[in-house]
Every structure is written in structure tokens, then in C-alpha cells.
Write a protein that binds this DNA or RNA. Structure first.
Length: 411
DNA sequence: TCTGGGGTCCTAGGACCC
DNA sequence: TCTGGGGTCCTAGGACCC
């Protein structure tokens, strides 16, 4: 018999901000940006949720719902720091920990009864340890599968613990809306509703053949989920598997849509530089470069190109990104630009000797550049290709709105 | 309501090879 | 000649998650 926990921090970003500014406690707080900015709510305090504010809602909408709410810019470094503290606490309970995102994790506690006692008691002890170790509240779901534990932690919120006994999975899931199943979003919910399926028990009662015919492979996975099984999709494999990223990307939404080629090129180069930097940090190389562009009407296009050799070099990424962009661009004003690296490879496989020497020289240069950026901020050092274009663009775009760190000092 | 940024996984068609 | 089937890679788009 397996035992899994799902641990989910309560209103994580808001709670961390409260630790830095206790006067926020109990007030309607919105993390994500200022009310006049383009952007969405990253997290809302429980007081703010009472006004109907929730994450992913446009900031302007949140402001209309609750003008007296306190709007706070997000501080990623703070959340990463606290995410690390969460991880440390979790590791004390089981070496089999997998952070599923910055604020939630799965624990495999199978076979730890003699050490931790029965699941419910262990969950309560973990809950208390989290409070002591991080000063933050969390909710914990415990059961025989990751899926059921995840749903359970959601039902336990805020600040609660819920254990679903072995054999009780179907009874627990049955009365819930299908939307509660991880992986069932807006579209799948609508499709299920169209078939008259509203509750998990409706889903569980259906023939697998019907679901497969209607929804394909996804339908089969859905049937398993309705029974509380982990198989198929995100819950495959062991807890703690999958460390290297499969893609690295940066995107930016302009504060005002732009058709200015100079500003666009500068942004593409900048995004490419940030992606390349992170590739080097991870010791990874990309073979497939992709760009994304979104027009004022929100229509979105992507263009990808697989290179003849893997790279982690700013200018190669930037050149590929610019070529892709100009192939796809209609000339209309742009709302968003993105640069993506896929088909990532580990730090080997540089076969061509000449190529190797060339990239080696580059790597030395870039290492120096990376050090400078660490010292003076991301905006300080740009490679030649971005220098000309970059300068004007920084005048156009308020530095506060630029991705990455704001330059602390101009060289 | 006027819609971020970082990801993962899936589908489907066409190219290309055997 | 007017026609197979499988495997893999590439590309574009989309659902979903936090």
C-alpha cells in the first residue's frame, strides 16, 4: 500500500510578502503588479478573495472589484528563498520529495509508518514542522495516490490536513465537480458538460470505450483519474524524477503595443541573451529555437527552427530569433514577444573540432560577461549585436518594465 | 474582465527514410 | 506505374498548471 502527501502552501506569495511587511496581515492584498499595469494577479490574500479576486485575473479587473486592495509587485527571489526553506522541511520527512512548482510538493511516504506513524498523524506533524520551519501555513492531502492527495490538499485549504483512507478514494472524489480533477480545465469541463457529465461520479460511471471514442487517449486517462489512479499523464514515474528542464524561455509583454522595428529587435536580442544565460547556467545546449509573437488583437503565432548544431551562445540564438520573427511578422503592432529554447542537450556532444574551438572562445567571453552581469545587473552588458538596437529601445521602454533585473549601474 | 510569465504534455500533418 | 506501411523528426497550435 502506497502513501503520498501533497503539500500546498497557502496563498504563498502573499504570505511571504506578509513576513516582510506584517502590516499587510488580514488586509486585501494582491501580488502581481500595480492596478494600472498590463498583467494578472499572481496571488490574492484570503481577504482579497472575498471581493471575488483570484489569481490569473487581470489587475485592472481586480482593482475594479476592490479599489482599496493593496497591490504589491512580486519578488521572485523572496519566493525562491522560501521555496528552498519549504524543501528543507519536507526533506526531513522523506528523501523522496518532488517540488511540483515553487509552492507545492509531493512526498512519497510509503513504508515509513514505523518512523512517522499512521499517515494522518504524520501529516499533522509535518504541518506543524512547516509552521515552525518557515512561519508559513500549508495544507496537506494524504492518500494512496498523488492525484487524490492533490485534490485532498485543495479541499483541506486553508491551513488544513485531509487524509483519504485506502478504499475511500471513489467516495471522496465522486461528489466533486469534474473541474477539480487536475488536468481538467475550462475546455475539457465544457466538453464534459456537453455530454451531461458534471461530477466525478458521472465520469467514473461511464464506459472507457465511450470516453476513448469521444476524447481519444485523453479520455482513457480521464477515466483513470475519475477512479483516483495516477497512471497516465503528469503522475507517471517516481516521485523525485525529472530534474533537467525540457525547455527554457523568456517572454515580454510591452507596456504599449509597438511596431517599432528597433524596439522589437532590441527586445528579441535581450530575450535571447537571457535564455542563453540560463542555458549556460544549466550547462545545457539548445537545438531548436522558437519565437512567439502576439498582436494587439491577441492573435498569437509561433515559428521554430532546428539548428544544424546545438548552441548556448547569445548571438546565435538572437540571430535565429530575429530571422524567425521577420519571417512571420506582418508589420502590425506587437503586444508580446517570446524566445524559447527546446530540444535541450547536456554539456557534451560538441563533435566538430573547429566549431568547438570557436564556441570555446565564445564561452570564455560569455563567462566574463555573465560575471559582469552578476555584479552590475542584467541590463549592463550587451553584446555588440544588441548594443546599437538596445540603446534606443531602453529609452522607449521604462526600465521597470523590462524583464530581468534593472541595471544598478551603467558602465 | 481585456487578458503575465514560466513551464509540461499532447496532437496532427508533412517530410523523409527504409 | 499511381501505389504500402512504419518510424522518426520537424513544425504549429493548443490545453493546462502554478
Amino acid at each position: 500500500m502506497k502513501t503520498f502527501f501533497h503539500v500546498d502552501m497557502d496563498a504563498f506569495f502573499v504570505s511571504v510578502e506578509e513576513l516582510f511587511d506584517p502590516s499587510l496581515k488580514g488586509k486585501p492584498v494582491v501580488v502581481g503588479g500595480q492596478p494600472d499595469e498590463r498583467g494578472v494577479v499572481s496571488a490574492a490574500s484570503y481577504a482579497a478573495r472575498k471581493f471575488g479576486i483570484h489569481s490569473a485575473m487581470p489587475l485592472r479587473t481586480a482593482y475594479k472589484l476592490c479599489p482599496q486592495a493593496i497591490f504589491v509587485d512580486g519578488h521572485r527571489e523572496r519566493y525562491l528563498e522560501y521555496s528552498e526553506k519549504v524543501f528543507v522541511v519536507l526533506q526531513q520527512f522523506s528523501p523522496r520529495v518532488e517540488m511540483a512548482s515553487i509552492d507545492e510538493a509531493y512526498l512519497d511516504l510509503t513504508g515509513t509508518e514505523r518512523l512517522h506513524g499512521p499517515p494522518l498523524a504524520a501529516a499533522h506533524r509535518l504541518h506543524e514542522a512547516m509552521r515552525r520551519g518557515t512561519s508559513l501555513n500549508c495544507s496537506i492531502g494524504a492518500s494512496t495516490s498523488r492525484l487524490v492527495s492533490k485534490v485532498a490538499s485543495d479541499q483541506a485549504k486553508p491551513n488544513g490536513v485531509l487524509w483519504i483512507m485506502p478504499g475511500g478514494e471513489a467516495r471522496f472524489l465522486g461528489p466533486l465537480d469534474v473541474r477539480k480533477i487536475p488536468g481538467v480545465g475550462k475546455v475539457t469541463e465544457r466538453n464534459l458538460h456537453a455530454c451531461g457529465i458534471r461530477k466525478v461520479r458521472d465520469l467514473a460511471a461511464l464506459e472507457e470505450a465511450f470516453l476513448e471514442e469521444r476524447f481519444g487517449k485523453w479520455g482513457l486517462a480521464l477515466a483513470g483519474k475519475a477512479r483516483g489512479e495516477d497512471a497516465g499523464g503528469w503522475f507517471d514515474g517516481e516521485v523525485g524524477e525529472g530534474d533537467d528542464p525540457k525547455s527554457i524561455s523568456h517572454e515580454h509583454t510591452f507596456s504599449v503595443d509597438t511596431a517599432d522595428t528597433t524596439a522589437i529587435d532590441a527586445m528579441l536580442v535581450r530575450l535571447a541573451e537571457m535564455v542563453a544565460r540560463r542555458l549556460r547556467d544549466h550547462k545545457l545546449w539548445t537545438r531548436t529555437v522558437q519565437i512567439k509573437l502576439r498582436y494587439s488583437d491577441f492573435s498569437t503565432f509561433t515559428r521554430a527552427k532546428t539548428l544544424d548544431h546545438a548552441t548556448q551562445i547569445d548571438t546565435e540564438l538572437a540571430e535565429a530569433a530575429r530571422a524567425l520573427f521577420h519571417r512571420a511578422w506582418s508589420g502590425k503592432a506587437i503586444r508580446l514577444l517570446g524566445v524559447y529554447a527546446q530540444s535541450l542537450e547536456a554539456d557534451e556532444g560538441q563533435t566538430n573540432l573547429l566549431e568547438e574551438e570557436k564556441t570555446e572562445r565564445w564561452r570564455k567571453t560569455l563567462k566574463a560577461v555573465d560575471r559582469l552581469r552578476d555584479k552590475y545587473g542584467d541590463g549592463t552588458v550587451s553584446l555588440a549585436a544588441s548594443l546599437k538596437a538596445g540603446f534606443r529601445a531602453r529609452v522607449h521602454e521604462n526600465p521597470e518594465n523590462l524583464p530581468g533585473k534593472t541595471p544598478k549601474k551603467e558602465e
